[in-house]
Write a protein that binds this DNA or RNA. Structure first.
Lengths: 227, 227
DNA sequence: ATGGCATGGATTTTCGAAAATCGTTGACAC
DNA sequence: GTGTCAACGATTTTCGAAAATCCATGCCAT
């Protein structure tokens, strides 16, 4: 709901954002075949920028490409969810540890500010409580980004950002079917407190528990299905 | 020297491999502007597949894109080298630990085989000892891949592969100017022994030392330059 | 001399159609 | 009834040129 104008600087960039948005919020579902005709209609442009957008999305793992058979939305699976969770524990855990070790007052300020914004908006919509609000999602991402923003490693930050994006696909599917997680707020607040107290080990443990809790909540949904 | 025919299945795939190869072995140098006219000549194809290849390379960090100003080869810097090294320690270290913990006989066989192939070929060319042989480079990559191939995490493997590719750019630049590393062979053999002995902690420590040694050898070259 | 502005050239970005490829359907032989 | 093969339709992939954009040069006014 945030991209009607040719968003960025180039059409291809706009197509990238639009298609990625459609994948992340479920309008395009896992396994769906992506025909160029449909995507051209969705993005109101020719085939070239759409193809570039799909190339980028494929490199990031949101879509897959079978040569000469076209693109499709990357499937979701229980095994990938577990894999993502394990990698988030490893990478974001280390990034958090580094941030606590090296973060300065600016970092603390960013963290407190991001948490304040996140805590001020409800997770679900008023009319449809089982659908995540767009602004909550943005602020949630910004919060986790702020948490690790002082780690000093652009590459690690990039890895974490990529993992966060992939986890987002699972988060939304789960929430739409099994309801919100009840204690996310408390866990976020606890993370801030531990970080400000410079309790590296405790904060990393809390982060691990946070992700594992999210993953556990999702496992129920995938139970039975999956490949 | 390994791609005259339209390598893969699609032209774009061939362009990707060719341009990436040119970047990794230094024919295209960091900061070089990538004009479509030149690339079309290099790849012998039209603009569309070249553009798709550049989109993929950009998503993987080998090239950068300024909107409407074109693509260029991603620059090399001392800070990025340190960042890559730290991330390799973290990710490949964990992947190695997991492989040692979970690897079976098949993994051991792959590892021994890969090491055997690597040890059988000299690092530098006979005519130009300061240039890495293409086959050594391939086998070196295969060895490190085999080392962590039993970690059970496709995402972690992908991260490691990406990091290895980036580190390769630094490795070649360094070797071409300051000569080979003298003890790489011994370190590789030691890694195999520790892995087969299932000494997780020792193997990870050896891997860290291996990467740090490589990085230290490179720092000398970058000393003075860099941004 | 200096700053702003229009003009030109070089390059990227996009388009719409042609060429190539894959899966499938249907006919035909065994 | 079963298996093989050829032709078709749908779709991707590629092409070559047009449109859009940016950077630099030179001109004019101050």
């Amino acid at each position: 709901m945030a991209a009607d104008r040719p968003t960025g600087k180039t059409l291809a960039g706009g197509a990238y954002e639009r298609i990625r948005g459609a994948i992340q919020d479920g309008r395009l579902r896992p396994g769906d075949r992506l025909r160029f005709a449909d995507l051209q209609a969705l993005c109101a442009m020719s085939v070239t920028p759409v193809r570039e957008a799909l190339a980028r999305l494929t490199a990031e793992g949101f879509t897959v490409l079978d040569d000469h058979r076209g693109f499709s939305v990357a499937p979701l699976s229980l095994s990938e969810l577990r894999d993502i969770t394990a990698n988030r524990k490893l990478c974001e855990g280390e990034a958090l540890r580094l941030s606590i070790e090296k973060g300065d007052g600016q970092w603390e300020a960013r963290l407190v500010a991001a948490h304040h914004l996140l805590a001020r908006v409800p997770q679900g919509r008023d009319d449809m409580p089982s659908v995540i609000r767009d602004d909550w999602d943005e602020r949630h991402a910004a919060f986790h980004q702020a948490l690790i923003s002082a780690c000093g490693s652009p590459i690690l930050l990039d890895t974490c950002l990529r993992l966060f994006g992939h986890a987002g696909r699972y988060r939304r599917v789960s929430v739409s079917l099994s309801g919100m997680r009840r204690d996310a707020e408390a866990e976020h607040r606890q993370l801030v407190e531990l970080a400000l107290a410079r309790d590296g080990a405790g904060a990393v443990a809390a982060l691990h528990a946070h992700y594992q809790g999210t993953a556990d909540a999702l496992e129920a949904f995938f139970d039975g299905r999956d490949a």
